[in-house]
Design a protein around this nucleic acid. Structure first.
Lengths: 342, 342
DNA sequence: ATTAGCACTCATTTAGAAGGAGTGCTAATA
DNA sequence: TATTAGCACTCCTTCTAAATGAGTGCTAAT
């Protein structure tokens, strides 16, 4: 059996209706709503077919039908077209541009959540920071030395060292020279035990300082792993009864607070090379177990210098895919513009 | 009418019982539970008195009694004694000491939430950063200058400036001298338009750089206002039916995600000078409207150099005050130790 | 191929009855 | 005088059964 044009239309009508109401939809509704001019009986026959084909399911005998994951998938894949409305407004809000990246990201998450009525998340761009660009030690106080480490992509790390006995200017200069000549421009893979030992030896009694600086470098690298994620509108899930019973809500809220799950989602999204920018996970397709009753729409944004991040929208399966996707697309452009203008 | 010893005992029994079960407690229960050896009828009479005095209320005719806010208040104020159990375990977890403040705070929030089964929050210490300690410009790349500003309390701000035409070493040195001689040790109140103008003038064609550096200083100050807050265990509220109906849960979750409300709580806590360290807000006493059905227990911690922050536990009114308070007290000591040893 | 019609299913709503927890009051008791 | 047993009463909760109604699947007619 194949999906002819009429079946497609009926399926679409069922999904549209279900997206609005959240209730199973029956044959009579479709018969009246659509311009197909078919009786409910005919619709019933078609629906039986659609069920057999796996696009819709009955929650129980003598209930209407609701879309299956497969049904949503077809809908998303084939029936989507752009919508432009409601986006101008968001544009305005976004353009109150914030200087700090963090604030900007938080704002994006918030605007998006308000705009869509779903829960949203956004990950800070992951910057590859593999080379040391610059290291500097400066005396800040008698016994305090500030180490500034700049990595590729202008990722900066500050570290305050305590030097009980102080350090004279000359020594400081020497140490600076030592660190920079050996480490500047060095990819971190090339920092090995041999090099460290050599440096420490040359630093003589100040080897502890060299050690601390190198530790700080290691920490920058480590930090790259646990990426910042901002969320907003988590409580929007309460707007959808199918997600807001205690057990489900608790799980979802937990996932949003403890961000590892989201982090996994981001990794997954970024890893997918085939990615055209926007991905839709429906129900069990989601990489996050907690979200098996939800749909997740993610978009990958890319700023300068290969800085990539992910935006995600999490809502019920009967999400307004159309709106969400077009909103995300517009947002991508917005972000691009915003960044380019800096 | 006054609270005699027996009334107190009965009140205590009612509260204890209600803390456990969350159900209204009746006279018969009390009559059997306590060692007072009184019939339910007598208890009933006493309960009528307690109700008249405002310590307990009836949710509806012919239901048992539950404590009023006033009842909880009395309980918290007078009937509290320390408990030590379950704390050793937490100690262990905490002592896997993390170097980064942020990670430590997050961990504290998490451990606390797991330990108490309530929602928790912790604010990063507010550091007063009123003096500039040290400023340094360094060339990182052809056209990129890194400005590092160290404020009192070792609050560090990095800012990357773009200098299209580059900057030779000598100029850089001069600018450094200029900035440091004028700004080092300067309380920010003393940075006025006159000073700024004078600096810019001396900087000549590089006045833009001075401007940017001063902007960065201004930003550090501004950042002091919106303090970081970490939360954990928000979904614990689902463990208490009286908080987990949709409307309430949604409001609470929202308050936890958008942190301004929590921020207000922190301000309030820190402002209270009379503070012995731990404060308990019951129901409507809470400064946050969203939490009028909860109890909030806060503790103020203080690290070196007047760095103060707040820890908060948010749960149902029938919170195990005893455990929460003693846990918080122990935690305070822990934090102290941890910090001192650094 | 489409449709009208009908019997059937099953979740949801409704109303009423039963149950039960708990109270307040009164009269008896120590 | 303080305590208690007993009882009528209230009102929430649970249960049951019936009514409702949305929706289906099937059959026979168009």
């Amino acid at each position: 059996m194949q999906l002819d044009e009429r079946k497609k239309k009926i399926l679409q009508a069922i999904i549209r209706n279900y997206l609005e109401t959240g209730e199973p939809v029956g044959s009579r509704t479709i018969s009246k709503y659509t311009d197909l001019n078919l009786s409910s009986a005919t619709i019933r026959n078609e629906m039986a077919d659609l069920e057999e084909l796996g696009y819709i399911v009955q929650p129980h005998t003598s209930a209407g039908r609701i879309p299956s994951d497969q049904g949503y998938r077809l809908y998303v894949d084939t029936m989507l077209e752009e919508k432009e409305k409601e986006i101008e407004e968001m544009k305005g809000m976004l353009l109150e541009r914030e200087d700090k990246m963090e604030a900007l990201l938080k704002q994006v998450a918030r605007v998006l959540a308000q705009n869509t009525n779903y829960a949203t998340m956004i990950s800070a761009p992951q910057i590859h920071r593999n080379k040391i660009k610059f290291i500097q030690l400066s005396r800040v106080d008698m016994g305090q030395i500030l180490a500034v480490i700049v990595m590729e992509g202008n990722v900066i790390k500050n570290h305050v060292l305590h030097v009980p006995d102080g350090l004279d200017d000359e020594t400081l200069l020497k140490l600076n020279m030592l660190l920079n000549t050996h480490l500047n421009g060095l990819p971190i893979e090339q920092i090995n035990l041999g090099l460290i030992a050599a440096l420490k030896q040359q630093a003589g009694i100040h080897e502890a300082i060299v050690g601390e600086v190198l530790d700080a470098v290691a920490e920058v690298i480590r930090e790259a792993d646990d990426l910042e994620i901002y969320t907003s509108g988590t409580n929007n899930i309460f707007k959808y009864p199918e997600l807001s019973d205690n057990a489900k809500a608790s799980e979802l809220i937990g996932a949003f607070e403890e961000k590892q799950a989201l982090s996994a989602l981001v990794q997954e999204t970024l890893a997918d090379e085939s990615n055209t920018g926007i991905q839709v996970y429906i129900g069990n397709e989601s990489p996050i177990q907690n979200m098996k009753d939800c749909s997740v729409v993610t978009a990958t944004y890319e700023l300068d210098e290969g800085m990539k991040g992910t935006i995600g929208i999490i809502g019920p399966k009967r999400m307004d895919y159309d709106k969400v996707i077009s909103t995300l697309k517009t947002l991508m452009h917005q972000l691009d513009d915003l960044y380019k203008r800096k």
